[in-house]
Design a protein around this nucleic acid. Structure first.
Length: 476
DNA sequence: TGAAATGTTGGGGCG
DNA sequence: ACGCCCCAACATTTC
């Protein structure tokens, strides 16, 4: 690749969602140039760019600390600044004499607009500027169907995308990163106050190790064990069968190319590897859909949903967020989310279906809650998956696919292990009734009857109401 | 990456 | 022994 890095001045490497040293083209190009490198992270306040939620900020705090330490081990540094990205870059350039800015690309409209403006400004000021791909196996404009259009259905999308992936490669971390003569001012991470205080609600987050090393360890653990049986067990929320890489991937502590290469080399059946990689494929698909439909965070992919009569029901929404709907599998999921910043994928589908179809609450309200509480909150995935469940999205679930929270619980948590862990007031119920505690004879459930909510809606009635509401949509 | 209603089949109880 | 009914098990269709 051609690198015109404009003279000998320092190169600014602007980290965003690529908080790693390995497989980071912006960083490796800078390091390879032999010129001084200024690694920079901006806590961006550009209007229109959606601010991170509280759980994401918790993760960011630790991830930046890890990145700073990795850079320090190379006798470099991570400069931290808060403000509008454009103004921050101007200031850092002015004080450092940087003549080049490199970054890895993002694919949501607000980030693209910001980066486009910045690129134009840098050119005007004779600062060289280049962007790279660290985040995706295939960039959105490179996967097209026969008529040159982006795919709208996952299966053909992924078939075409993987055809293009015969030579996936992931670069090693640079061995040296040259320092500038003088470092620009950096703010202090601690001073940003990203870790919650008064109260510190993050006590349950300790299973996570944010940062590049934690990400690689997680990948290694997954590929040397749980991937064997992934296809069968990935739907069982009590089983340690999924990779749990999503927050690492979101912050770019590991990239999809690294995952691809490692998974392909894993000592496992090809079928299991393909199953896992197709989940990476959904991430790619969601990025592509968002890139080609920039309004997706606000607007339905299928406009016939614009007239849908969503219900405003604050009390039910609150019951959902607190895990007090009276449906054990739903409540377990929502409580897992609140406690750990994570929720198993199968359960995400169940709780989302419940909010949208049983309560008829706008998917945007659920999306906003997940955005604030999920450690892996990711715009393309969060928006794409919520629209998928609502039926308003690309390749979406049909409107009549309404999960039965009792049947889903019995099918995917047959022994009630997951429910018992997160809804302890039901722990003593027998397996047979743990997903429908209201059917248990009173003598079995004195404690549960007292403390656990009755279902806030009747499943059968809610199902009929949802079918009727969805029936009114034109063209479905 | 559903669920429920409806249809079909076949074994067993029973008059 | 036979037909009839019941119903579980499975398949199909409908939402």
């Amino acid at each position: 690749m051609r690198i015109d890095t404009g003279g000998d001045g320092p190169i600014l490497v602007w980290f965003r969602k690529d908080l790693r040293l390995a497989d980071n083209p912006a960083l490796s190009h800078a390091a390879r140039s032999g010129r001084p490198v200024i690694p920079l992270y901006i806590l961006d306040e550009t209007p229109g760019v959606r601010p991170m939620g509280a759980a994401s900020l918790w993760w960011l705090d630790k991830s930046l600390k890890a990145l700073a330490e990795s850079l320090e081990a190379l006798d470099s540094k991570l400069i931290l600044r808060r403000g509008e990205a454009q103004a921050v870059l101007d200031d850092v350039i002015a004080h450092s004499g940087a003549t080049c800015v490199l970054w890895n690309r993002l694919y949501d409209a607000a980030s693209i607009d910001r980066d486009t403006d910045i690129k134009a400004r840098l050119k005007d000021n004779d600062v060289d500027c280049q962007s790279f791909n660290a985040g995706l196996l295939n960039e959105p404009w490179t996967v097209q169907n026969g008529s040159g259009q982006p795919y709208k259905v996952f299966t053909p999308y992924w078939r075409a995308a993987r055809e293009q992936l015969h030579h996936v490669d992931a670069e090693a971390a640079p061995k040296a990163v040259k320092s500038p003569d003088k470092w620009p001012h950096s703010e202090s991470l601690r001073g940003w106050g990203l870790h919650p205080a008064k109260p510190d609600w993050s006590k349950g987050f300790d299973e996570w190790t944010p940062g590049e090393a934690g990400a690689l360890e997680r990948l290694d653990d997954f590929l040397s064990g749980p991937i064997d049986g992934y296809g069968e067990k990935r739907d069982i929320p009590s089983a340690p069968a999924t990779s749990r890489l999503s927050p690492h991937l979101h912050f770019g502590e590991i990239g999809p190319r690294q995952i691809w290469v490692a998974a392909r080399n894993a000592d496992t059946s090809a079928g299991e590897v393909e199953k896992f990689l197709s989940e990476v494929g959904w991430r790619e698909f969601n990025h592509s859909i968002l890139f080609h439909n920039p309004d997706l965070p606000k607007a339905n992919f299928r406009p016939e949903f614009d007239g849908f009569g969503w219900v405003k029901d604050h009390a039910s929404f609150e019951a959902w967020t607190r895990g007090e709907t009276g449906y054990p599998i739903v409540d377990a999921g929502m409580r897992e989310l609140w406690a750990t910043g994570f929720m198993h994928n199968r359960v995400r589908m169940i709780v989302a279906s419940f909010l949208i179809k049983h309560l008829l609450i706008d998917w945007r309200e659920g999306e906003a809650w997940f955005w604030d509480t999920l450690l892996d909150a990711d715009l393309p995935n969060n928006v794409g998956n919520w629209q998928w469940v609502a039926g308003s999205g690309a390749d979406a679930a049909p409107y009549f696919r309404i999960f039965n929270p009792i049947a889903q619980g019995e099918k995917f948590d047959p022994r009630g292990d997951y429910v018992r862990r997160w809804v302890p007031e039901l722990a003593s119920l027998p397996d047979k009734v743990i997903h429908s505690p209201w059917t248990a004879p009173a003598h079995l459930t004195p404690a549960a009857k007292r403390t656990y909510a009755r279902p806030i809606v009747d499943h059968g009635q809610a199902r009929q109401r949802a079918l009727a509401a969805y029936q009114n949509l034109k063209g479905v």
